[in-house]
């Protein structure tokens, strides 16, 4: 009999390539992160056409945009922006990740492959005072976000980050089928805020922006905060 390989499934690294994963496994500790996040009312049709059937919309429908700077992570400094849909999974409040942009190739791989964040490469800028930021794709700016004025100081324990849901996909390599794997993944990051300011929030998309599918119809609030957080292992993985 020919000799068999001895690499067991359990000993394969957490992601390929086998001998040189691009990034360490979760959880990733992310101390001192700066986050500017806005919540706004949006259109029912945009929400319903972009969330899976297991999820339901709130009344009124709302979206979130978040610009985040991680100065200290297991893969070094990177910045990340997300557009989320506020939704419900049964009784629970969740943020469904709709679109994301990240400025680090390693973070891009990890966020897509491990957690299922819908990341594309781009430029993400968060001002040093945390009160404004912008997101750029390959065709230019796709979103501008601002706290809205100076904002007012807020007790950090009031800042809330709802669990995130992403779609984790493995594409099919067989003709006539779509996904070998499609799962809903719930990422519950522990977040401890230690400074926070709240404003009304200003979210704008230049004409033709991919992010304009989630229009800002009525700003609700925005919070600029500094937090210690982490990207953990998924809390739940559910069938689509």
């Amino acid at each position: 009999m020919p000799d068999q390989g001895t690499l067991t499934e359990a000993s394969v690294a957490h992601t390929s390539p086998v001998l040189a994963p691009l990034y360490p496994p979760p959880p990733w500790k992310l101390p001192g992160a700066r986050i500017l996040r806005a919540v706004f009312e949006t259109d029912k049709e945009a929400v319903l056409s972009n969330v899976p059937p297991k999820l339901t919309r709130s009344s009124p429908p709302y979206g979130l945009v978040s610009i985040e700077h991680y100065a200290d992570s297991p893969i070094g400094e990177f910045s990340l922006a997300h557009q989320f849909i506020g939704c419900r999974a049964g009784f629970f409040v969740r943020a469904f990740a709709l679109q994301s942009v990240v400025d680090s190739p390693v973070a891009l791989s990890a966020l897509r492959e491990v957690w299922g964040f819908p990341c594309v490469p781009g430029k993400v800028t968060l001002a040093a005072d945390g009160k404004s930021g912008s997101v750029e794709g390959e065709r230019g700016v796709i979103c501008n976000l601002a706290l809205g004025g100076e904002g007012e100081e807020l007790a950090p324990d009031l800042v809330r980050f709802d669990p995130i849901l992403t779609l984790r996909l493995a594409p099919s390599l067989q003709e006539g089928t779509t996904h070998d794997l499609i799962q809903l993944v719930q990422v519950d990051a522990e977040v401890e805020a230690y400074t926070a300011r709240r404003g009304k929030g200003e979210v704008t998309y230049p004409d033709g922006s991919d992010w304009s599918i989630l229009a800002c119809r009525n700003p609700i609030s925005a919070v600029s905060s500094v937090v210690d957080t982490e990207l953990p292992l998924a809390r739940f993985v559910m069938p689509y």
């Binding site: 919540v39 339901t56 919309r57 709130s58 009344s59 009124p60 709302y62 506020g86 419900r88 049964g90 009784f91 629970f92 409040v93 807020l154 007790a155 009031l158 800042v159 809330r160 709802d162 926070a196 709240r198 609700i220 609030s221 919070v223």
Partner: peptide, 27 residues
């Protein structure tokens, strides 16, 4: 009742303020 209540937007979900520290009736 709980399922319908969960689809409302509690203040503390979207607007952090000391005026609404608890989710109220909703959850």
């Amino acid at each position: 009742f709980a399922h319908l209540a969960a689809h409302l937007i509690g203040i503390s979900t979207v607007y952090p303020t000391p005026a609404y520290k608890t989710p109220g009736l909703l959850f």
